Amino acid sequence: MKNLMNIKSQKQIADRIYEMVLEGDITSSMKTPGQFVHVRIADSTEHVLRRPISIADIDYDRSQFTIVYRAEGAGTKKISTLTAGDTLDILSPLGNGYPLEQNDHVLIVGGGIGVPPLYELSKRLNQMGVKTTHVLGFNSKKDVFYEDKFKALGETHVATADGSYGTEGFVTDVIRNLKDEHDIFYACGPKVMLKVLSETMNLDGYISLEERMGCGFGVCYACVCETARGDYIKLCTEGPVFRKGEIVL
């Protein structure tokens, strides 16, 4: 559904990472953690394609939701210049999110800009009484964000590739030393991280892929991926969340 949203606030929270809070009635339609919005950059033809951005937090009482994104291309850099009082044209909510299953203890693993959708997921699981442990991976200390938010929901570990903060290395280095047992894992991040997790974790799980998209609703076939069955599916409509082993990474 297309909608013009009011921007309530925007701030930079890490190196090139921005957090934007939007307000509008469409918030009530956002049901599943892991869904995304498709953002129109401008009315001009300079940026024809919308940008897919995950939903990080939902506040139904205020009809507000939060997106967190990295300003690295011309389009997202333009979005980062918007301020409170501006409006943003979005299509939302899109995609299939994470199933909220009742478990005792789950492991939540995020890498870089794959971290944001996991925050709403962890919130929901906590509301269900599920214990959550979070492992967040970043390149460097300057890239770290949302650590305190996750800590408020459960045990939280941070890894940085250059060792400038937390554990030196990758999320798998942290996971290797965790003592607790987990029933299932949820993950979002770079494809190489998801591939390693899927191949090494002795747990069932769900992964969410980051992918470039054209239309966002299954018409352009720009985001197809191969399944373990040998056919192809569209990430924007049948994903971005899939069960471990369902797609070829």
Rank of each mutant, 00 (worst) to 15 (best):
N96H: 07
L118Y: 00
L91W: 10
N103G: 00
L88C: 05
G75K: 04
D86K: 13
L107H: 06
I79K: 11
S80I: 01
P99S: 03
L88Q: 06
L118Q: 05
F65G: 13
Y98P: 05
L107E: 07
E72I: 15
V115Y: 00
D61S: 12
G111M: 08
L118P: 02
L91F: 07
T87H: 10
T87L: 01
D89E: 15
L107M: 06
A71V: 12
R70S: 14
F65K: 11
I108N: 03
G85L: 09
K78N: 11
Y69T: 11
K78F: 09
I67H: 10
G73S: 01
F65I: 14
G112D: 01
K77W: 07
Q64N: 12
V106H: 03
L82G: 10
L118T: 05
G112C: 01
F65E: 13
I108G: 00
T76A: 00
A74F: 07
N96M: 08
T76S: 04
V109A: 02
P99E: 02
G114E: 08
G97C: 01
L82Y: 14
D61P: 01
Y98I: 03
A71S: 15
G95R: 06
L100A: 01
T81M: 12
L82E: 09
G73D: 09
V68G: 05
P99D: 00
I79C: 09
G95V: 03
D104A: 10
L91V: 06
P116W: 04
L100Y: 04
S63M: 14
S92Q: 09
D104H: 12
E101Q: 13
G111K: 00
V109I: 13
I108T: 00
P116G: 00
D86P: 11
A84H: 07
V115D: 03
G85N: 07
H105T: 08
R62A: 15
T83S: 14
T87F: 06
N96L: 08
D61W: 04
E72D: 11
G114R: 05
I108W: 00
S63P: 01
Q102P: 01
I90Q: 06
F65D: 11
A71C: 10
T81R: 12
P117D: 03
L82M: 15
Y98R: 04
T87E: 12
V68T: 15
T66G: 03
G73P: 06
G95A: 07
G75P: 06
E101R: 09
I108R: 03
R70A: 14
D104M: 03
K77G: 07
L94G: 04
R70I: 14
G112R: 03
